[in-house]
Design a protein around this nucleic acid. Structure first.
Lengths: 209, 209
DNA sequence: CCTACCGATCGGTAGG
DNA sequence: CCTACCGATCGGTAGG
């Protein structure tokens, strides 16, 4: 019968806030709504997080920390050849497939506070973009990657493809069965296929290393 | 010195609401904020639109009506061959390039009310999706289009690419000059290139018609 | 982590 | 299209 550690409530609040912010947005969420999910009073939430703004920042921070944990795997895979490319993108896809709330949160923040979000993303995935675009340019020099491809723009579009398809995929899912596991898999598979076929020259794809 | 037509105020309110909803979201926007942009009182806005919800519906309605106007051009172009394909996609890209607010509004509605949005989109672009996927399957049968492509999923991803890149493009724009005209053009060009190269088999591209 | 409380703002109504 | 007004809810504080 040990008492719960003091940090437990903070974590529970953070997880509840993540869910509600993702579903209804920051402005659409009242502190009361977060409290209802956890079963405490508003004044108690404000003990753990001094303001609603502080809660938002903590939520985003937790999200980016989670991303930092999978980054090494993505980076390693992105450094060369096609098989590693596919592996790396799959890790990134998995990060959002595990919890689409992550994708929704990222998209909402980008819409609500574009300037802050650009600065934050630059800090957190800026260096990573550099590595990927450098690898792409190497591939172009070696004749494996399509010469007319725009590296920075391509990376941006692939990020958008991944984040967007998990955030609002169901909405545009016309003609696909709705909400089941197969739909997610189908989306991820096509995103991967599009990224690959728009990147590599046909016939040169399997030669890379 | 003719008096302004009675409809003018309604239109002004609709345009102001479109801008503010796109920038701050529905929940993040007060009726007062819309009124401030137009210079009238809150009670007057509620004469033209009986509730905030009615204002939202009118904004979405105007957006979809605008889309209906460009749909014929897109449809015509999508029915065959590659040049028409590029032309059709360009029309769609232009629709959002003209006013990125359209893309932001669509994305916000998809996040805020996914179920309603799916129903609305099904009504407005459902038939169009059918035409495009049918054309893709025809292309696959004729050996012009990649056989491993998933038609419904591909269309969804292309829609996402177009809408997403105009809605939040600047946020992920790492390493590109920010906010100028060239950035928009670069994004649109790469989206077009990605869609095309992930659709057609290399070498078969120019044979279609 | 709670009770009690606050000023500000919200969407909306009455009545002209 | 306006003045005047309303109940409800918002984020946040005092004090324990």
């Amino acid at each position: 019968m040990s008492a719960p550690p003091p940090e437990a409530m903070r974590t529970r609040l953070l997880e509840a806030a993540t869910r509600v912010f993702a579903a209804r947005g920051y402005e659409g969420t009242s502190l009361q709504a977060v409290c209802d999910q956890v079963g405490i009073r508003k004044a108690s939430l404000l003990y753990w997080f001094p303001s609603k703004e502080a809660l938002r920042e903590a939520v985003i921070d937790a999200l980016l920390t989670g991303w930092k944990d999978v980054l090494p795997a993505v980076l390693l895979a992105a450094s060369t050849g096609e098989d590693r490319f596919a592996g790396g993108l799959k890790v990134a896809l998995d990060f959002f497939a595990t919890s689409p709330d992550r994708a929704r949160l990222l998209l909402r923040e980008s819409l609500d506070r574009p300037d802050e979000m650009r600065a934050t993303l630059n800090r957190h995935i800026g260096p990573w973009i550099g590595v990927v675009t450098a690898a792409i340019r190497r591939g172009q020099a070696e004749g494996r990657v399509r010469p007319d491809l725009d590296p920075e723009a391509w990376v941006m579009q692939v990020v958008l493809l991944v984040v967007g398809s998990f955030a609002v995929g169901e909405v545009v899912d016309l003609g696909l069965a709705t909400g089941d596991e197969g739909t997610h898999a189908r989306r991820a598979a096509e995103a991967l296929r599009m990224a690959r076929s728009s990147l590599f020259l046909d016939g040169a794809a399997t030669r890379g290393g």
